[in-house]
Design a protein around this nucleic acid. Sequence first.
DNA 1: TTAGTAACTCACAATTTTGTTAGAAATGGG
DNA 2: CCCATTTCTAACAAAATTGTGAGTTACTAA
Lengths: 129, 129
Amino acid sequence: MGKRKITSTNTINRDYLKNECGTMYALTLLSGRWKMTILHKLSKKGLRFTELKECIPNISDRMLSLHLKEMERDGLVERNVFAEVPPRVEYTLTSSTRDLVSIWDRLDIWGNNHREIQESNVQYLDGDL
Amino acid sequence: MGKRKITSTNTINRDYLKNECGTMYALTLLSGRWKMTILHKLSKKGLRFTELKECIPNISDRMLSLHLKEMERDGLVERNVFAEVPPRVEYTLTSSTRDLVSIWDRLDIWGNNHREIQESNVQYLDGDL
DNA sequence: TTAGTAACTCACAATTTTGTTAGAAATGGG
DNA sequence: CCCATTTCTAACAAAATTGTGAGTTACTAA
C-alpha cells in the first residue's frame, strides 16, 4: 500500500515469496485489510464507491480508495466511469476474479470448521486449569 | 505479531472482519510473511527449527520463532519436544491444517493463471506507450 | 570446568500498513 | 459564478509488522 522502499529486506523478501508459487502470489494480491470484503460485496453485483462505503461499516474513504486502486492495478476489479453528473463510477469483478470467488467455498467451510475446533480446545484448556 | 493494542481502531476492525466468515477467519490466521511457506515445507514432513531455517532462505530466527508460536496457538502446527541432547523440537501440521493444504491446489492454479493474464496485460500496455 | 549445540529470546530499529481529517477536481443546473 | 454531489487525494499520525544482532538456556560429553 502506498510507497515501498524497493531496496529494503522487507520488500525483497516479499517479492521473493510472491514468485514462489501461485498460492503465494494470490495471497499477496489479496492481502490488505478490506480486500476480501470488497471482493465479497462485488461478487453479488457491481457497486459504486459510495455504495461500497455504505455496506462496509468502518472503512475509511482512504482505505477504500487505496484498495480499489491496487485491485484495479492487479486485475482484480474493473473501474467503469459513467459520464453523468454527479460522476458515477462502478466497480465490478474481472472474469478472473469471479473464478477465484468460487474457490472460497471450500476455504469458508475449512475456516468455520477450524474455528470450532479452536474454540472447543480453549474450553478444554479452561476446564483443565 | 507481537503485541496489539486492543483498543485501536485497527484491532477492532481486524477482529470484526475475522468474525465475518470462515474465509476471512482463515486468511487472518494465515497472514504473516512466512506462514504459508512454513506450512508448505511442513506439508511434506515434520521438521525441526533448524531444518526450517535452512530450507527457508532469508527467514530470521525471530520471525520463524514468532510465526511458529502463533501457528501453534492457532492450531495450525504442533510442537513436539524430544528429550535428547542437544534438544530436538519437531514441528508438524495438525490434521486440520492438512485438510487446508489440500485446498491450495486450486488456488495455486488460479494464481498462476492470473499471473499470466496480468503479465500479458503489462506487455500490451507497454507496447501501447 | 569448559565447550558445543539447538532452540530460542530480547531490545531496538526500520519499514509498512492503517486511520483521521480536511479538502480538491469535475460537472451541469440555476 | 455558485451550488450540490460523488469520487477521490494529500498531509499527517498512529499502530503493526518485519528485520538485526547479540545474548540466553539447558544439557551432557569430554
